[in-house]
Design a protein around this nucleic acid. Structure first.
Length: 787
RNA sequence: GGGCGUAUGGCUCAGUUGGUUAGAGCGCUAUCCUCACACGAUAGAGGUCGAUGGUUCGAGUCCAUCUACGCCCACCA
C-alpha cells in the first residue's frame, strides 16, 4: 500500500477536474439562499505573494463552507488592471517608458501585455484552490467595466456630486498626477533644519527655522503662537522675506508649536497641509513657486527651473553668502510620500475632478454602524478615518492607462459636454459628442485625465453583479453577503465602496465585512522585497502542497497579522497525510460493504460514543464557522479526527473489524466508519479541498453520487445517532486505557505486551464493569482489578 | 499627540458570560518498527498567565495605572 500521499499529482488532477466540470460556476437557477461575495480583485502585478495566499484562503474557506451548507454561493473573480501599477508593470516587462512611445501606443501595449500575463497571474489563485467562478473573470479595464464606471460617474454628475475645480491638490511630481489622501504614506527622512534670519520693516530681525528654504519665494505669511510671550510684540508687524523680498504679515495661530524651531514659522503656498489650512483660514495670497514637474518656476527668479532639492541647496548657499543662515542642524522628520513611488508629495493648485462627499460624514458613520464587522474593532478604524476626512475625493489622475473621464469641453463656450449613456464607454480623446454644443459649436476639447483606480474598484459589487445576466438574481446578490479584505485598505477600498454605495443607492454594499491580517515573516516583521524576507509562495506550495499551506493560513483569525511558520505548514502536510492514511485504513474494511441506513440500529457502545462525539464536533464546528471563526473550527475537527477517531475509535474497533464475532457487529463498525469518515472529510473539505476530494472520489463518490465532495452538504446531527448518555461512561473507558498505556510506557513495554493483571483507578466501578472485556482485549491484559 | 490591538510554558496560539489541580500543537526527553500511518504511537518534563495596585469568598478572565511591541490617524514649519 502507498504510504505517502502524493499531493502533487492529486492537486493537479483535481484542479483540472474542477475546471473541466465547471464545479464552481455560478448557477443562477440553483435553489437556496444566495451567499454572495464581493471578492477583492488583486492588483495585477507580476506574481501573487504569500499574503495573497493567506487572505484568499480565508475567503475561500468561508465560500466553501457556505456552499456545503447548501447555499448558492456567488464567488466571482476579477483582476484590477487599472492605473499606475499596471503602467509600471507594463514598463518593466517591455523595458520601455511611456514617454518614449507616446500615449496611444502605450495604451495598446498595456492592453496587449495584460492579455499576455493575465492567465498566468490568475493561475496562482487557481493553484491555492480558490473556488471562484473562473469561467467569468472580470478585468477593471475591460470595456464592460469602463461602461459601468463611466455610467456611475455620469450619475454622480447629475446629482451634482461631481465637480471640477482648480484647487490645491496633493500631487506627485514623479508620477505627474494628483493623488488622494489615502495614497499618502509617511516616511522618516533626514533633513536640515535651517535657522534663517528675516528682517522686519521696523529694522528688527527674527529667526525662522525651516526645512524647506526653497519655498521662500512662496512665503505669504509668518505665524507665532498667540500665547508665546517672546513674540507677542511681533503680531501684526510686517517682515521681509530674504532673497525674494516680498513683504509678509505676522499672524498668530494656535497651531504653532512654541517648542519647535524658534517658535516662529513661515507659511508658504504650499509647504504642507498646515499651510493649506492657514491659506484658507486667513485668506492668504497665493504664491506658487513650484511646478507640477517638481521644479521652481518664474517666481523663483534666478532659481527658476531647478528641481526642488537642487534649489534647496542653492538657496541655502545663497543665504549663507548673505550671512542669513544663523545655524543648521540635522533632524529626522517624517514627510508625506506617494505610496506607489516614494516621491515626496507636493501640494500644487491644479484643475481636478472631485466627488463631493465631505458633507456626508455623518451618513457614512451611520452606514458603518449598520455594517456587521468581523472583527468588531475594525469598525473604529473606518470611523476615525471618516471623521478625519479633510478633502473631497479627488478622482482625476493625470495618467494614461485608466478609465477616461467621459467629458468634453466646448471649444467656444467651455461648457462641459457629457456623452449619452448608450454611447458608453467613451474615450473623449478618440471620439466626439453625438450632438453639437448648445452654443452651436461643433468643436470640442477632450478631457485627458483618467479616473482614479478606486473610483472604479469602489464599484466592485456592481461590477461583480454585471456578470450575472438575470435581473432578479442580481437583486438577490446585492447587497452582497460578504466583503472580505485586509485591514490595510479599510480607508481606501472599504470606505470608497461604502461611500459609492451610499451615493448611488443609499444602501450598504454588503451585510458582513470580514477583515484579514497580514503575513509577517517568522520574526514577526513585515515582509518586503527590499528586506529580502519575503517568502515565495510558489516554492512553498511546491514543497508542501496547497492543502498544507491552506492549513497554515487557516490558523490566522480575523484581523490578526500572523507569522509565516514553516512548522505549521509541515503540520498541515502531516494532517493531509493522516487524513489520507486513516481513510485508506478505514475504507479497507468497507470492501464488501454496501451502506444501509438500518445498520445504524446495530451500533455498539463505542460506535454510539464516536457518533455522539461527532455530533458535538459538528455543532461546535458550525457555530464557529458561522461567525467566521475558522481557526477554531479547524482545531475542533483536528481534535476529533486525530484524537477521538484515530487514536481511540479506530484502535478500539480493530479487533471487531479484523475478527468480528458476528455479521452484525461488523456491519455496525462498517456503518460507523462509512458515516464518520465521510463526515470528517466533509468538515475538512473547506480547509483541505484536495486530499478530501481524493478520498471522496476514491470511494464515496460511487455511493453518494454527488460529483464532488465540494458540492455535497455538510454532515448534520442525526437524532437517532446521538447518545449523550454514553459519553461519560466512555470517558471512564478512555481513562482506563490511558492508565494501562501509561503503565506500559513507564515500564518500557510495547503496547501489545501481554499483562497478567493490572489495577486501575476509576470513578465508577459499576459503570465501567461492562467494558472490562473490551479494555482487556484492546490492551492485552488478562485481568483488570478496579481500585 | 489621538485611537485600536496584542502581551499565557522554548515557539505558534486556545482559554466563551470571573469558580475546583491554566489547555492544544510544534519543539524537547524517554519508550515502542502495536498487522493504516515513524509525516506514526504512548508517556513525560516544562507556564502562575507583561508589571503594579484594586474589586471579589474567588481573576489569566473585571477596573485603574504603567511597560513593551504592532497597526491606523494626526503632526511633521
Amino acid at each position: 500500500m502507498q504510504k505517502q500521499y502524493d499531493f502533487k499529482k492529486q492537486e493537479l488532477k483535481w484542479r483540472k477536474f474542477w475546471e473541466k466540470e465547471s464545479l464552481y460556476k455560478f448557477n443562477p437557477k440553483k435553489s437556496g439562499k444566495i451567499f454572495s461575495i464581493d471578492t477583492d480583485p488583486p492588483t495585477l502585478s507580476g506574481k501573487m505573494h504569500i499574503g495573497h495566499v493567506s487572505s484568499y484562503t480565508h475567503e475561500d474557506i468561508i465560500a466553501r463552507y457556505h456552499r456545503m451548507k447548501g447555499e448558492n454561493v456567488y464567488f466571482p473573480f476579477g483582476v484590477d488592471c487599472n492605473g499606475l501599477p499596471t503602467e509600471r508593470l507594463v514598463e518593466s516587462i517591455n523595458k520601455i517608458t511611456l514617454f518614449e512611445i507616446g500615449r496611444k501606443k502605450f495604451i495598446q501595449l498595456c492592453q496587449g501585455t495584460i492579455k499576455k500575463v493575465l492567465p498566468d497571474f490568475i493561475a496562482g489563485w487557481k493553484r491555492v484552490g480558490m473556488s471562484c467562478d473562473f469561467s467569468n473573470v472580470y478585468s477593471t479595464i475591460s470595456q464592460e467595466v469602463q461602461k459601468i464606471s463611466q455610467e456611475y460617474f455620469l450619475e454622480l454628475f447629475e446629482q451634482n456630486r461631481v465637480y471640477e475645480k482648480e484647487s490645491p491638490t496633493l500631487f506627485c511630481p514623479f508620477c505627474q498626477t494628483a493623488i488622494a489622501q489615502a495614497e499618502m504614506e509617511d516616511k522618516e527622512k533626514q533633513t536640515i533644519f535651517n535657522d534663517i534670519e528675516f528682517k522686519l520693516e521696523d529694522g528688527n530681525k527674527i529667526i525662522i527655522a525651516t526645512t524647506r528654504p526653497e519655498l521662500l519665494a512662496s512665503c505669504v505669511a509668518i505665524f507665532v503662537h498667540p500665547k508665546d510671550a517672546r513674540y507677542k510684540n511681533l503680531i501684526g508687524k510686517t517682515a521681509i522675506v530674504p532673497i525674494f523680498g516680498q513683504k509678509v504679515k505676522i499672524f498668530s495661530d494656535e497651531n504653532v508649536d512654541k517648542e519647535k524651531g524658534t517658535g516662529i514659522v513661515m507659511c508658504c503656498t504650499f509647504g504642507d497641509t498646515t499651510d493649506l489650512d492657514w491659506y484658507f483660514k486667513y485668506n492668504l495670497p497665493l504664491r506658487v513657486s513650484i511646478t507640477k514637474q517638481g521644479k521652481l518656476n518664474d517666481l523663483a527668479g534666478e532659481f527658476k527651473g531647478l528641481p526642488i532639492k537642487v534649489a534647496r541647496k542653492m538657496i541655502i548657499e545663497r543665504l549663507k553668502e548673505k550671512g542669513l543662515i544663523k545655524s543648521q542642524k540635522n533632524i529626522n522628520h517624517s514627510v508625506n510620500i506617494h505610496e506607489r513611488c516614494g516621491t515626496e508629495v507636493e501640494i500644487i493648485p491644479t484643475r481636478q475632478w472631485f466627488i463631493k462627499y465631505l458633507d456626508l460624514k455623518e451618513q457614512f458613520l451611520k452606514q458603518s454602524d449598520k455594517l456587521n464587522w468581523y472583527p468588531k474593532y475594525m469598525k473604529i478604524r473606518l470611523d476615525n478615518w471618516i471623521r478625519g476626512l479633510r478633502w473631497d475625493w479627488c478622482v482625476s489622475r493625470q495618467r494614461y492607462f485608466g478609465i477616461p473621464i467621459p467629458v468634453w469641453y466646448c471649444k467656444k463656450c467651455s461648457k462641459i459636454i457629457l456623452p449619452s449613456i448608450k454611447d458608453l464607454p467613451v474615450d473623449p480623446l478618440h471620439s466626439k459628442p453625438s450632438k453639437k454644443c448648445s452654443c452651436g459649436s461643433n468643436e470640442f476639447i477632450p478631457e485627458t485625465d483618467v479616473l482614479d483606480t478606486w473610483a472604479t474598484s469602489s464599484l466592485s459589487p456592481q461590477i461583480a453583479l454585471s456578470l450575472v445576466k438575470d435581473k432578479k438574481i442580481r437583486q438577490k446578490i446585492f447587497p452582497t453577503s460578504l466583503r472580505p479584505q485586509a485591514h490595510d485598505i479599510i480607508n481606501f477600498w472599504l470606505f470608497y465602496t461604502l461611500s459609492r454605495s451610499y451615493l448611488h443607492f443609499k444602501k450598504l454594499p454588503w451585510k458582513d465585512v470580514f477583515i484579514s491580517g497580514h503575513v509577517l515573516d517568522s520574526k514577526g516583521e513585515k515582509m518586503s522585497k527590499s528586506k529580502g524576507n519575503a517568502v515565495d509562495p510558489e516554492a512553498i506550495l511546491e514543497k508542501y502542497g496547497t492543502d498544507a499551506v491552506r492549513y497554515w493560513a487557516s490558523q490566522a483569525g480575523m484581523g490578526d497579522d500572523f507569522r509565516f511558520n514553516e512548522e505549521e505548514i509541515q503540520q498541515g502536510k502531516r494532517t493531509a497525510t493522516k487524513i489520507w492514511n486513516a481513510s485508506q485504513f478505514a475504507l479497507m474494511h468497507l470492501k464488501n460493504y454496501s451502506y444501509k441506513k438500518t445498520d445504524g440500529k446495530l451500533l455498539e457502545d463505542e460506535d454510539k460514543w464516536i457518533f455522539t462525539k461527532l455530533n458535538q464536533t459538528i455543532k461546535e464546528y458550525t457555530d464557529r464557522m458561522d461567525k467566521y471563526e475558522y481557526p477554531r473550527a479547524k482545531e475542533i475537527i483536528d481534535s476529533f479526527f486525530w484524537k477521538d477517531f484515530c487514536d481511540n475509535y479506530l484502535e478500539i474497533i480493530k479487533s471487531r473489524a479484523y475478527e468480528p464475532e458476528n455479521k452484525n457487529t461488523l456491519k455496525a463498525v462498517q456503518f460507523t466508519i462509512y458515516k464518520v469518515v465521510l463526515a470528517i472529510l466533509k468538515l475538512y473539505a473547506p480547509f483541505m479541498p484536495f486530499v478530501t476530494e481524493e478520498v471522496y472520489q476514491g470511494y464515496f463518490q460511487k455511493t453518494e453520487k454527488t460529483k464532488s465532495i465540494h458540492l455535497t452538504l455538510l454532515p448534520v446531527i442525526e437524532k437517532e445517532l446521538n447518545f449523550p448518555k454514553i459519553v461519560p461512561d466512555f470517558e471512564l473507558v478512555i481513562d482506563a486505557i490511558s492508565q494501562i498505556r501509561k503503565y506500559k510506557s513507564e515500564n518500557r513495554l510495547s503496547m501489545k505486551a501481554e499483562l497478567e493483571s493490572v489495577s486501575i483507578k476509576t470513578k465508577d466501578k459499576q459503570r465501567i464493569k461492562k467494558y472490562l472485556p473490551l479494555i482487556s482485549k484492546l490492551m492485552s491484559v488478562k485481568e483488570i482489578k478496579l481500585v
